[in-house]
Structure formats: structure tokens, C-alpha cells
Amino acid sequence: MSRFVVHRLWQGVIVVFCVVVVVFVLTRLIGDPVRVMLPLEATADQRALFEAQLGLDRPIWEQFLVFVGDAVALDFGDSLWQRRPAMEIIAERLPATLILTFSAIGLAVVVAVPLGILAALKPEGLFDRVVVLVSLIGLSVPQFWLGLLFIVLFAVQLGWLPTSGRGGVEHVILPALTLAIPAMTRIIMVVRSTMMDELNRQYVKTLRAKGLLEWQVVGVHALRNAAVPVLTLCGWELIRALSGYTVVVETVFAWPGLGLTAIQAIERQDLILLQAIVFVTAIIVVAVNLILDIVYKAIDPRIELKAA
């Protein structure tokens, strides 16, 4: 177990390092940070001063070492837009993103698992067909558009919920629902198909023959066996949401999280803030991945945690 954890930690470090390399190559070699960040009318002196400030006048390998050192120290310098450390801004905005993501995935799981099970009980039945069709539609609707529809319907027409921004619980509902729907549909499909497979297995027949109540057969035995693929997918959905889907939803609802900050940083040509966000997100994604791997092991003893 501990060997496995060490191995996965090491893998995670490699992933984060690769992200650092890619970010460095992108910002320093492919793009020209001075051109991107300074206005067009900046004079040559201003450009030189700015280059010296960022250390861009030094040789490229030295720049890379400094960059890696800064990344390890979690210090990316001051945001050009807000004139204060980028990490400070991230620390402020990160909780909003975490609240949004976790409530969305929680909502998706709570709704999707019972629906998927109910659909699997009668394959090709009316309920099953309706669930599959609605899931397919939910999967096909663009998220940003869905968010706009929700705003028009629930916030403007019905006036039940606020249109955007952050505040009490009522502010989370619409963005979380928007973020949850694609994840929800994918989880429904997987719960449905794995439960259908499990319910066709021999052990289910044995349990029924023994006279176990149907809810025990389905809810305890079959569900437990179907848990691993479903959990894997839920983990995937969490990572997917954290690593990008929040950008769209946060923009639509003006939810002040990391995703919205990333878009604002791009609009203001603030590469320093943007690279800090990408780096922090990479660390979070790697950490969530690691935690999920360990959780699977705890749930299903059949999984072997190979160090290969």
C-alpha cells in the first residue's frame, strides 16, 4: 500500500513538472510575454525595464531554473492586473470553485444513481427509455446555453433565484445545476449499464432463489458490485469539472472562482496570474487523482494496487 502511494505521488510530481515545462515553453519560447502583457504604445525603455523585472534578459536555462524554483516555492510574482501576488488572488478565489464543483458533483451523484438503478430494473421499459432519451438530450445541450436558459427561466421569469454572483446558498443552485447536468447524464448511463450487467449475473439469481427481498438484492448486493466503475466515473467527473468545465459555468454566472479569474486574466493579458492558475489547478487535479486511487482500494478489495 505505501509503495503504491509513493509510486503514485512520484507520478503526480512528474505530471506537475511536465505542466511547468509546458507552461514555460508556451509563455517564454512560443509566446512573447512582453508583447502580450505590455500595451502597444510602450517605449523601448519600458520594454527593457519590464524584461529585466521579469528576468527575461537572462539566458533561457537560467530563466527555466528560476521558473522551476518559483513554482516549487509557489511564488509566481505579482499579478499585472491587480498588482498583488498571484497566489493571494488564487487563495481568495479557490474556495468558490471548490464549493461549486463539489456541490455540482454531489448533486449529480445523488440524482443520477437512483435514476440509473430504476432504469436498469426494467431494461427497455418505458421508464428506461425516457431516462435514456432525457440523458442523451442533457448530454447534447451546450453547458453555457443551458446556464443562460436557467437564468432566463428561474431567475428572470420566475424570479426564484439570483441571476449571478456569489452570496448565500441560493446563489450556488443554478451554477451547480448547470455544471452537474452533463456529469449527471454520464453517471446515469454508466449506473444503468453496469447495474443491468450485474442483475444478469448468477449470484443475483442465487440471492433471489434464497428468497432475499428485491431491494436487498438490488440495493445491497448488485449495487456494491457495480460501485467501482460508477465511482471511477464520479472521480473523473470531479476532475473534469475542476480542470476546466468550471470556466464556462463561472463565466456565465459571474461566479468568482478560479475559472472566471482565468478568463479575466486572459482578457487583461495577465500571463503571470494565468500561469499560476494553471499550475495550482494541475496540483489539485493530481491530488484528487491520488486520493481517488486510494479510495478505490478501500472500497473494492479486488483492485490490486500494482506499482507498475
Binding site: S243, G244, V247, L274
Partner: peptide, 20 residues
């Protein structure tokens, strides 16, 4: 492949689009 799958894809895409 494993490393790239663990990458925060969309954010890096945003970064590329912002730079290029």
C-alpha cells in the same frame, strides 16, 4: 499518455489560445 490524461486539459488549452 498517462501524464497527458492527468493534465488539466481545458485550462492549458486556454493558455495556448491566450499566448498564440
Amino acid at each position: 499518455v498517462d501524464i497527458q490524461i492527468a493534465f488539466p486539459g481545458l485550462l492549458l488549452a486556454l493558455m495556448i489560445l491566450a499566448v498564440v
